[in-house]
Design a protein around this nucleic acid. Structure first.
Lengths: 403, 403
DNA sequence: CGGGTCGGGTCAAAGGTCCA
DNA sequence: TTGGACCTTTGACCCGACCC
């Protein structure tokens, strides 16, 4: 309040106080701009004119009346009026860099206020994404969606192994882009390509009664997804089993994040930790509050990363094909498959998010988080009811056979 | 910016005395702020950035010139400059309650927006402030001490801070490649650039007697390496400690692989697991044969990957800057630093190993393995003798101070 | 006890975005 | 493309604790 001397231009909104008028057009002024009380319209007009050094031409005699109704009739005279009332062109600054979506750490409660505060920022965000990707994303999505029905002359034909081999296809129409076949293979055919969509009916992790059943369903879908990867069957059967056993819980968590399923702490606590069963105390890995929160945290981090369906597909493949797993008979082949998956992801991100150079690396660096909650823990949280009799390996095996 | 209205924008009223210049933008400084002579603009900018943990993105190559006319063109580079001239983020205090001064009439809208804007206000207070201030009082004295010796020719004359600034330098000889400077900074100065070379004398992990001492030495070098990363000090002091505590064991394993140090199972067994001490049985994490073998396996996998020194440097930075770590005050800033590291690695690999398209992804995907052996385990294996009295955090802290 | 320094906060007037 | 309603950021200025 350094300007206490003059009449404070308090812009009362819904009243007829001392409404200050724009010196240029007589509209209600929104404050002092470039040295003069003006409305937002004249402010913006003056700024644009100066910034871009525009020279207008009056079609009349350089004496058009400028008022709120006619201010847009003649730009030349409007600008002339601006100067006449002493708007200061030197107060117009250079254009700045476009405002970057300044994400701060949008965790937990802060995200709420942010969402409240700027809802259009979110729209803007998605708009920008769409705008940025308009050229390449749209066609890609279409292809993925219709690939089941479009046998893709060269690639798609029958089920077995072959068409995953060249994962970066030089023969791709627009130059080195992600193989459509690979994308299709790694993405479940019935997978919706838009976020926020719940793909499975009858899944609701938020309800205690539904928890076990839903979890089984998710796991089943995961296994089915794995079986949908043709190259998976290139591996020795034993390696298939090992990879599945080694990776199921990470894939499970990824699915929760991918399908935006709710992770309710209270529900999980009720289902997993709190009920004290006598035999539980013997087991070493007890799933406590900390693990549940950790899981929630992990899922939130993945959601915050705004990962699209194609990326999830690649990430899941990367997670599945862990070449370092002990006991593999064909570690080299597994490595090759992981290479395919990660290279596809990299290629895709370069194409679809060219402005986010670090996106690919970031995604890969999120994967270790999936191990922050052990599979034993996940088992206890989600599958305890189911597994009273069936060990996890058995469940996986059964699912794998019947999927 | 209220001076722009009528008077000339230059407030060079009585330019008497040698006007001191802002170290960031060269404007007239209004005093020392956060440890450095700056103008009010840069002071406010720095404060806002730190308070809200903002992460800006440079649209260019992270080397925008910052002067009084262009300081608002690129927030990313402006903040970078702030850190380069050593503004101390720990001197920025928490937001306080709005001034208690009797407020006069505010419109409802105004009140609401204000309330929204500052949400976390009243809590912290003197205790935290004191704690925080304790850290930044010291640097003040230092600056006072060395300012007589720095007559402001260029910014820095004496200390070594400078060489990490632009990590992707356009002036790099072969065009946009990894900055030699950054690599140099991330690599210990006396580090040999060729593989297989043993950098430290007196380190021999293969001998039981030398094990502890050598391990301490390796850890010390690791800590020293961390301290050699200038950007590490951009982080809040507390975050520095958290990251070091969270990452030391992974860095330690990486160093073993990097320097080709032997991992002898028998030696480690003798030193760590086998001798049954009574107090050991109480501890939960016992380091057994399995963990030792796992460690050996991990190290072998890294060696087999033929990682060069630059890559190791980047990987270590990637491991160090874990943005997901719980408790960080500036997670966004950490993320930015990790982004820098991984993007540097990617750039380097594309340049140096153009035929290995998947190399970058592979390296990142090796990192989860470093967690297969817990830090508790590493502690037991290598530091048990040392740590009978000293807890690990203490050891790290001491090393960090003296490195 | 006054003046300098450097934390804090304030808010006019710059900036920007985006639909009509 | 331009206008203009609406929101964020900047920075000159003020307050106050603390130290000479």
């Amino acid at each position: 309040m350094s300007e206490t001397d003059s009449i404070a231009p308090r812009r009362g909104k819904a009243e007829a106080k001392q409404t200050v008028l724009c010196k240029v057009c007589g509209d209600r002024a929104s404050g002092k701009h470039y040295g003069v009380l003006t409305c937002d319209g004249c402010r913006g007009f003056f700024k644009r004119s100066i910034r871009r050094d525009l020279a207008y031409q009056c079609k009349e005699s350089n004496s058009c009346p400028i008022d709120v109704a006619r201010r847009n009739q003649c730009q030349a005279c409007r600008l002339k009026k601006c100067f006449e009332v002493r708007m200061n062109r030197d107060a117009v600054q250079h254009e700045r860099a476009p405002r970057t979506n300044q994400y701060k750490h949008c965790t937990n409660e802060e995200i709420r206020s942010k969402t409240l505060k700027r809802k259009q920022v979110n729209f803007e965000h998605s708009n920008q994404d769409i705008a940025t990707n308009a050229t390449h994303v749209a066609p890609k999505k279409e292809k993925v969606l219709d690939s089941p029905t479009t046998p893709e002359p060269g690639y798609y034909g029958n089920s077995p192994p072959r068409f995953l081999v060249g994962y970066v296809t030089p023969e791709s129409p627009k130059g080195g882009t992600v193989s459509v076949a690979m994308t299709a293979a790694i993405t479940p055919p019935h997978t919706p390509q838009h976020r926020q969509q719940m793909p499975f009916q009858m899944i609701y992790l938020g309800s205690p009664e539904m928890l076990h059943e839903s979890a089984v369903r998710i796991l089943f879908m995961t296994v089915k997804w794995v079986r949908n990867i043709p190259t998976f069957f290139e591996l020795p059967f034993r390696d298939q089993a090992i990879l599945l056993e080694e990776g199921w819980s990470e894939l499970f968590i990824l699915s929760i994040a991918q399908w935006n399923l709710p992770v309710e702490i209270s529900t999980l606590m009720a289902a997993a930790g709190v009920s004290p069963q006598p035999n539980e105390s013997v087991e070493r890995v007890i799933c406590g509050m900390a693990e549940i929160k950790a899981l929630k945290n992990i899922v939130e981090r993945f959601r915050a990363a705004d990962i699209d369906q194609t990326e999830y597909a690649c990430l899941k493949a990367v997670v599945l094909f862990k070449p370092g797993t002990r006991g593999l008979r064909a570690p080299h082949h597994v490595e090759q498959l992981q290479d395919q998956a990660q290279s596809m992801l990299g290629e895709y991100d370069r194409q679809s998010y060219p402005s986010q150079q670090v996106r690919f690396g970031r995604l890969l660096l999120m994967l270790p988080a999936l191990k922050e909650v052990s599979s034993k823990c996940i088992e206890q949280m989600f599958f305890r009811g189911t597994l009273d009799t069936i060990p996890m390996e058995r469940l996986l095996s059964d699912m794998f056979k019947s999927a």
